[in-house]
Simulated scan of single mutants.
Amino acid sequence: MTFALAMVLYPEVQRRAQAEIDSVVGEDRLPTFEDRSSLPYVESVLRETFRWHPILPNGVPHATLTDDIFDGYFIPKGATVRCNIWGISRDENRYPEASSFIPERFIDANNALTDDDPARYVFGFGRRGCPGRHAADASLWSAIVTMLATVEFSPAKDDQGKAIEFTPRFTTGLTHSPMVFPCNISARSRSHLQLVNVFRTEA
């Protein structure tokens, strides 16, 4: 949902990602995991999706088993410890214009990915990190690259053909995700529609 919202709000990102896919994959097949290393901009879109609106902005609470001192701070046994993932993702020193969806922040001047990967913090840290992180990362990449390859996200239009303006809203509480928003999803072309239909038949 966050990715779809970003594609509606930032069409130039969608166009650049689709151009990369078309140049690497072509239009006669769907992208596969073997293509992943050849699609750095798509990878940066995934990273920015993780960073832009993390689903667990305050992480999962944990409790200390013993007294501890970290970076000069005393943390008593039994204290509840949370990771401020939202604060990390909104650090303007690290991510200028942090409220904007800018995948280019993860690509250097040579069009190579930087070492900054939000998956390293949005899934938790160390031994308490999400055990399903790699499966989730692969699943989301597959979904995002397939949607980019086959469909077009655009603003929904009213009866007069004008784009429906809206202000994105998000759920509040432990989890953070977009609430329903108006949009249009259509096949990029007849050949792309056939690719989806072939995939459905084979699946």
Rank of each mutant, 00 (worst) to 15 (best):
R94E: 09
F70Q: 08
E92D: 15
H53N: 09
I107P: 02
F74S: 00
V42Q: 11
D91Y: 04
D115R: 11
D68P: 05
G72Q: 03
N58L: 07
L39R: 13
A109Y: 07
N58D: 04
E97H: 13
F33A: 12
R47H: 13
Y73D: 10
D117S: 09
R47Y: 10
H53Q: 09
P54T: 06
R51E: 03
A112K: 15
Y41I: 11
I75Y: 00
R82I: 10
L65Y: 08
L113A: 04
S37C: 14
V60R: 00
D117V: 11
W86I: 00
P61Q: 03
A119G: 07
F74K: 08
N111V: 09
K77R: 14
F74R: 11
H62G: 02
R82Y: 01
P118K: 07
R94P: 09
E48D: 09
G87L: 00
S44D: 02
P103N: 00
I88G: 00
P103K: 03
Y41D: 04
F101L: 11
N111A: 08
D91M: 02
L46C: 10
E92L: 15
S89G: 13
W86D: 01
R51W: 05
S89M: 14
T64Q: 07
D108I: 12
D91E: 13
D35H: 12
P76Q: 06
F106G: 00
A79V: 10
S38M: 15
I85C: 05
D68H: 05
I85E: 01
V81N: 04
P57C: 02
L56C: 02
R47Q: 06
P76M: 10
S44H: 01
I102V: 15
I102E: 06
S38F: 13
F33T: 14
V42W: 03
N93R: 14
Y95M: 00
S100W: 10
F101S: 00
D71Q: 14
R90T: 07
W52K: 13
D115V: 11
S99N: 15
C83H: 06
R82H: 04
A63H: 12
T49I: 05
I102H: 09
S38D: 15
G72R: 01
C83R: 05
S38E: 14
N84L: 06
R82A: 02
P76R: 11
F70P: 01
R94Y: 12
L46A: 06
D71F: 09
D67H: 14
D35R: 12
S37R: 15
D116T: 06
P54G: 07
W86P: 01
P103F: 10
P40A: 04
S38Y: 13
I55E: 04
F50V: 12
P40G: 09
T64E: 08
N111M: 12
P54Y: 02
D108P: 10
I75H: 02
Y95W: 13
P118T: 02
H53E: 14
R47D: 06
F70K: 06
